[in-house]
């Protein structure tokens, strides 16, 4: 089962995302702050497959720090950043540091939940591929050594 962590300091946002992703069959954990999020990432038994984090919690760089925490736990964890509308600059910064994608929370005329579901699916796919590639590489190396 694909494990998703939702990090957002707004209860409504967390529960709405958790409910929707749960419907898709993901196993969803949530964290209500940057700190909680970092702790959850660190202490999870197995690393999360996909992390959805708000960009702006404690400050404008909360999302960046969640990204760093996630990548330092597992380089293949995919991170999707949520931003307020029009606040793309920081999201682009996250992309440069390896985030999977960003989603603007309040894009007029778009059902953002369907969009997030789609992105989570794509992120999960990419993670699977990355992990598989790594495994094959490891197998290949192991065979060579053997």
């Amino acid at each position: 089962m694909i494990r998703v962590l939702v990090v957002d300091d707004e209860e409504e946002v967390r529960s709405a995302l958790a409910r929707r992703l749960d419907r898709e069959g993901y196993r969803v954990n949530s964290a209500g702050s940057e700190m909680e999020g970092l702790v959850a990432i660190k202490e999870a038994e197995a690393p999360f497959d996909v992390i959805i984090t708000d960009m702006h919690m404690m400050d404008i760089n909360s999302g960046v720090r969640i990204l760093e925490g996630a990548v330092s736990r597992d380089i293949f964890t995919e991170v999707i950043v949520l931003t307020a509308y029009g606040n793309v600059a920081n999201a682009v910064e996250c992309m440069k540091r390896g985030a999977f994608d960003y989603v603007e929370k309040n894009l007029p005329g778009i059902d953002v939940f369907e969009l997030i579901v789609l992105k989570v699916e794509l992120a999960a796919q990419r993670r699977r591929q990355s992990v598989q590639t790594l495994r094959r590489l490891e197998d290949f190396q192991a065979a060579e050594i053997g």
Binding site: D8, E10, E12, V13, S15, A16, L17, R19, R20, R23, H56, A84, Y85, K105, N106, D111, V112, F113, E114
Partner: peptide, 21 residues
Amino acid sequence: NSHMIGNRVFGIKGDLNELEY
């Protein structure tokens, strides 16, 4: 304000999405 309003709206959109489902 708009960050908070945006988040409320986001939550409502989630409810609507669920309701539609």
